[in-house]
Simulated assay, not measured.
Amino acid sequence: MTFQPESELSTEEANDRVDDALAGNDVVLFMKGNRLMPQCGYSKRALELISGHVEEFETVDVLPALPEYREALESHSGWETIPQTYVEGEFVGGSDVLAELEERDELGATLAGEA
Rank of each mutant, 00 (worst) to 15 (best):
L101W: 01
A14D: 05
K32M: 10
W79L: 09
T2K: 14
G113Y: 05
N15V: 10
Y86N: 01
V28I: 03
L49N: 01
E13Y: 06
L111N: 05
Q39N: 13
E48V: 07
H53I: 04
Y86A: 00
L66Y: 11
E48T: 12
E74N: 12
T81A: 09
A46E: 05
S95Y: 01
L107P: 01
L9E: 07
Y86V: 01
G93L: 01
L111T: 00
F30Y: 02
A72K: 04
G89W: 03
L73E: 03
V62C: 07
L49G: 04
T2G: 14
G24K: 11
M1G: 15
A109D: 15
L107R: 00
Y42H: 13
S75E: 13
V92A: 05
R17I: 07
G41P: 07
E90Y: 05
V28P: 02
A115H: 12
E56P: 02
L107I: 04
H76R: 15
G41E: 09
D26H: 11
N15I: 03
D105G: 13
M31P: 01
T110P: 04
F91E: 00
S10K: 08
I50C: 00
Q39H: 12
M31K: 03
S77T: 01
I82F: 01
E58Y: 01
R17F: 07
W79S: 06
F3Q: 14
I82Y: 03
A109W: 12
T59G: 02
E74G: 09
D96Y: 02
E55A: 13
Q4W: 11
Q39G: 13
P5T: 05
A109L: 14
E102C: 07
G33M: 07
V62T: 06
E80S: 15
E100V: 08
D96N: 10
R45C: 08
E102M: 11
G52L: 08
T85C: 09
E114R: 12
T59A: 05
G94L: 05
Q4R: 13
F91M: 03
A115L: 15
G108P: 04
L49K: 07
R104K: 15
Q84L: 03
G41K: 10
H76M: 11
R17H: 12
G41N: 09
E6G: 12
N25G: 02
Q39S: 12
I82M: 06
V54P: 04
F30K: 02
E114D: 15
F3A: 14
L47F: 10
F57W: 07
D105C: 12
M37P: 10
E56C: 09
V60C: 03
